[in-house]
């Protein structure tokens, strides 16, 4: 029964979180700290920190972590499944429509608008990732004094390597290499 409740709670979060994992966090906070008193706000802060630190989609991480803290592995599974269930239903419907009407005029028209807009959104996400990595802040809160020199150097080196060395053109190998080399630099020179 408690597991069902957990599933249902995260099902609601899953429906409401438009715009990615970060949009889900305030909704999860509301649900687990005030609507249900499963966690204190301080405990929820831990959830946010861990979700951002660990790899994987942030919404999934948060659901997994809350579930895990409450009822162990079973709780983690219930919360995660609840979170993804609405998306599964909606994506399936859209995928069927896409397959059927992809070549149609209306769908084609919608997609000619959506594709470039998505490139714009990806660019905006890239900008925010870059400013966070280089200055530890979003665009409007940048302070040049806080420039993270190690991050800037690692990024530039990673970009050049990705372009020049064929073996390193895969994003995964670049990310791992940056983690090892960058991590080493932070440990030697401090700043982490």
């Amino acid at each position: 029964m408690m597991l069902l409740n957990l599933f249902w709670t995260f099902f609601q979060v899953g429906i409401l979180s438009f715009g990615g994992g970060y949009a889900a966090l305030p909704i999860i906070c509301e649900k687990v700290t005030s609507e249900n008193t499963w966690l204190t706000v301080a405990q929820f802060t831990d959830v946010v920190t861990i979700s951002q630190m660990t790899p994987g989609p942030i919404g999934i991480n948060a659901a997994t972590f809350v579930g895990m803290r409450l009822y162990g592995v079973l709780g983690a599974i219930c919360a995660t499944l609840g979170f993804v269930a609405p998306a599964c239903i909606i994506v399936t419907i859209l995928a069927i429509i896409y397959k059927k009407y992809r070549k149609s005029d209306v769908m084609g028209g919608v997609l000619t608008g959506l594709r470039p807009a998505s490139v714009g959104l990806i660019a905006s996400a890239a900008l925010s990732i870059i400013t966070t990595a280089f200055f530890g802040a979003e665009l409007f809160e940048i302070n040049i004094k806080n420039t993270d020199i190690i991050a800037v150097c690692v990024s530039i080196a990673a970009y050049i390597l990705m372009k020049k060395v064929k073996k390193l053109s895969s994003p995964i190998s670049i990310i791992i290499l940056s983690g090892v080399v960058g991590g080493g630099l932070y440990l030697i020179f401090g700043g982490a």
Binding site: A151, M162, A192
Partner: peptide, 25 residues
């Protein structure tokens, strides 16, 4: 969350992610 090695590696990885994102854009 407080382990310095974990923190350092994650920061390094974020720098790599920044490069990867810039490339795709």
């Amino acid at each position: 969350a407080e382990n310095p090695v974990v923190k350092a590696v994650l920061l390094g990885m974020s720098a790599g992610v920044a490069a990867v994102m810039l490339d795709v854009v």
